[in-house]
């Protein structure tokens, strides 16, 4: 019973939802960029109408369970563009912070339809973002840094009331699960010492993935030791994700004794892990063409931080600047 009470206590924590609002804005901006690009290339009708109408999806109407949008509405280029318009509108409202729960529901359903129509153009990052949007729907991510807050309280920051912390915890936990499972599933030997940690060397040879012809330029052979290091770092970083849960627990129970806890608190292991992650994602963004992947991952990183840490950072920065002057 005591354990259950502690469990309830954990999920009943409260905080100002600044970090959730940042995630809401960053995710909205990243997806907006992605979907605007779909529109700029004129792709909605190509991607979301069946082959019978000249689109890319095959056998979409013959499936046992066709996408719901085609069950209730006749497929057409206009419908595809309408779906795109709904998603764009939802994303704008999400970034502005207007009726976040309702907008979130419509967005998730419409976004999921695009995945059902053309699964080939929907990647793991889309799945992750929809998971996060589902959490945001049940959060108070629109209570601050939003138009809703401005209209309600006169300030963009809202009334600084506290709200449940659990949505942030769930997003952080989702990231831990994602990284760890990605690490566990990297069973190819080239991700391990047995394969010489050569995974990145191979991946960057793929002309559909590489940002430039790194192989043709002779870059990959020249920097292969660095790529081995990057491969090892990626694998260790992913396998090490559960450390974040430990780090979170130690921060949550910081008043308790213990050497390991003291070590984690003194060295802020969480921050070290987060910085390594950010560097790896930036490396991916520079070397590969994976679209919004790296930026979408970074958009979720505020989940690692308590909103009070923003004030802490602000104070540290002011102190640093005043000491310099």
């Amino acid at each position: 019973m005591k354990l259950w009470s502690k469990w309830v206590a954990l999920w009943s924590q409260r905080e100002v939802p600044t970090m959730l609002a940042l995630i809401r804005i960053f995710v909205g901006v990243v997806l907006l960029w992605d979907f605007v690009e779909i529109g700029l290339h004129g792709l909605p009708d190509v991607m979301w109408t069946p082959q019978e109408l000249g689109g890319l999806p095959s056998n979409v109407l013959q499936r046992k369970v066709p996408p719901e949008v085609f069950t209730y509405l006749d497929p057409s280029p206009e419908l595809a563009w309408g779906l795109w318009g709904v998603i764009i509108l939802c994303l704008v409202l999400l970034v502005l912070g207007v009726a976040t729960p309702l907008v979130g529901v419509v967005l998730v359903l419409a976004y999921a339809q695009t995945a059902l129509i053309l699964p080939l153009s929907d990647r793991g990052i889309d799945l992750l973002l929809r998971n996060v949007l589902m959490v945001l729907i049940f959060s108070k991510a629109g209570a601050t840094l939003s138009l809703q807050a401005k209209l309600k309280t006169g300030s963009w920051l809202g009334d600084a009331k506290t709200h449940p912390s659990w949505p942030r915890y769930l997003i952080a936990l989702q990231l831990v699960v994602m990284y760890f499972m990605a690490g566990v599933q990297k069973t190819a030997l080239t991700w391990t010492p047995l394969g010489g940690y050569n995974a990145l060397y191979i991946i960057l040879h793929d002309p559909h993935i590489a940002r430039m012809d790194w192989a043709g330029m002779g870059v990959l052979d020249a920097v292969s030791p660095l790529l081995r290091l990057g491969t090892a770092a990626t694998h260790i970083f992913e396998w090490g994700a559960p450390i974040l849960v430990l780090a979170f627990w130690f921060r949550y129970t910081h008043e308790r004794p213990g050497r390991l806890r003291a070590f984690f608190l003194r060295w802020d292991v969480r921050l070290i892990w987060v910085v390594i992650g950010a560097v790896l994602h930036l490396g991916i963004a520079i070397a590969m063409q994976l679209g919004v992947f790296a930026w979408a991952m970074l958009a979720l990183f505020p989940a690692w931080f308590h909103p009070d840490e923003i004030d802490g950072f602000r104070n540290w920065w002011k102190k640093r600047r005043s000491s310099q002057t």
Binding site: L109, A112, L116, L127, M134, Q185, A188, T190, W191, I209
Partner: peptide, 23 residues
């Protein structure tokens, strides 16, 4: 999971493609 497009499947570069294609 189908209607919300949610789930847990995180095979990112599980098997680096050592036989890459160029279109």
């Amino acid at each position: 999971n189908r209607i919300t497009g949610t789930g847990q499947a995180w095979g990112l570069f599980t098997y680096p493609n050592s036989f890459p294609h160029t279109m």
